[in-house]
Design a protein around this nucleic acid. Structure first.
Lengths: 215, 215
DNA sequence: ATAAATTTGTTACAAAAAATAACTATCGTA
DNA sequence: TACGATAGTTATTTTTTGTAACAAATTTAT
């Protein structure tokens, strides 16, 4: 595959910032700003200018020296670099509390992450319709991954079933997983996993309020 | 305030691990394990034994040398240390997509974080009933914070209104905020903020699948 | 009662990640 | 053609995180 990537490992912090850059750049575009320098963008994003240049450099060369970056094109460039200039079909496994919440949260769709399949092994849930999506037996995951072209898996089962859900996903050929359960899962080397857990954030705030520590 | 805290700054990574310890310890308790050493707990949690001892040390001394930790008491100790051995009343500001999803996601309640007030400034939403909770005008936030004893704020507005929501919360005397919008907010020194944003995680997976990079 | 074994709390060290600064190359303009 | 502006790159520093080593305390065995 030919691509402009220069570096294999992209720091997490970079990805987080890229999301911010996109946001700020989109606003700039609305205000008809056409070109912006790393220095000005840095001010708007509240980061260091070198930081921005370095973040972008992971994906190749794009700015014009002596000029800056073309706002509109830069947005596209970043989106393409992140692989979010297209739609990703997702499978959600575990139609519990959180699963339902995510199914109803259509911001994902707005960002190009379409939850196209909802899976659960509970016979009482199978067949249920949530937001126009029918809950399907997890055993059919493999078939559906093929027929619906699902590429990413979201795990929202109870923690003790996370590994099983993982196995189903991996077996079905999914190699990108976002695990919303507070459990580590083990996967083969070619599979990528991200963990999302709210509670540590809540705990952090709770402990700070509790102790009244100061910054 | 008298307490066992030894250190002001508790690393984020520590809090994340403490959440894991609680989980594993709770399982151990179910299996009637009464005492456990840092070495064994470490194996169960897949971390380094020193790590565990150090993590706990932030909150004071609790284990018994030559013996280990008493499982049941350690759970309570950690919960107390984190300030999660009690209920926290939360205000949710912004009854959009995500806001509704969170209101319906009762896992928060199970962990002691009760969303007791839902606020929005959209007249069409005010008065609406979600999960037994009436949506209230944001201008009434201050009153409700007092009467309902709300201590934490969750921001789920559109990003461009996050700062305004923040101001309302701060003005109402809230000093712990969890910001679910992809925007930085500015707060006075005594206010603690945590950021939760799904999309960088999605982006990360997307980019890895996109590039097919390897670990 | 004493020594050995165990295991914590603490400190010192090492590694990794991230941020910043400094430098070099390129572009546009006067 | 030279100068100012600004990107790309490399080097350095800082911060964060994790690991290892060791002294202090406790229990168990002799």
């Amino acid at each position: 595959m030919l691509q402009s990537s220069k570096s294999d490992h992209i720091p997490k912090a970079t990805i987080t910032r890229l999301a911010i850059y996109i946001q700020v750049l989109t606003n700039l575009k609305k205000e008809n700003v056409e070109v912006i320098s790393s220095a000005k963008l840095a001010r708007a994003c509240d980061v260091n200018p070198s930081q921005i240049r370095k973040d972008l450099a992971y994906f190749g060369e794009f700015g014009v020296r002596g000029v800056g970056y073309f706002v509109s094109d830069l947005i596209n460039f970043i989106k393409h670099a992140l692989g979010i200039d297209r739609v990703w079909n997702c499978a959600l496994v575990g139609v519990g509390n959180l699963g339902r919440a995510l199914l109803r949260h259509n911001d994902f769709a707005l960002h190009g992450f379409l939850i196209q399949g909802a899976f659960d092994c509970d016979p009482y849930k199978i067949g249920e319709n949530i937001e126009g999506l029918e809950v399907i037996c997890t055993r059919q995951l493999k078939d559906k991954v093929t027929s619906l072209n699902l590429e990413m898996g979201l795990i929202t089962t109870p923690p003790e079933r996370a590994q099983r859900a993982t196995n189903y996903l991996v077996d079905a050929g999914i190699s990108g997983i976002i695990n919303f359960t507070p459990t580590r899962i083990t996967v083969p080397d070619h599979v990528f996993v991200e963990y999302i857990d709210f509670f540590p954030h809540f705990y952090h705030i709770a402990s700070q309020l509790h102790f009244g520590t100061h910054k």
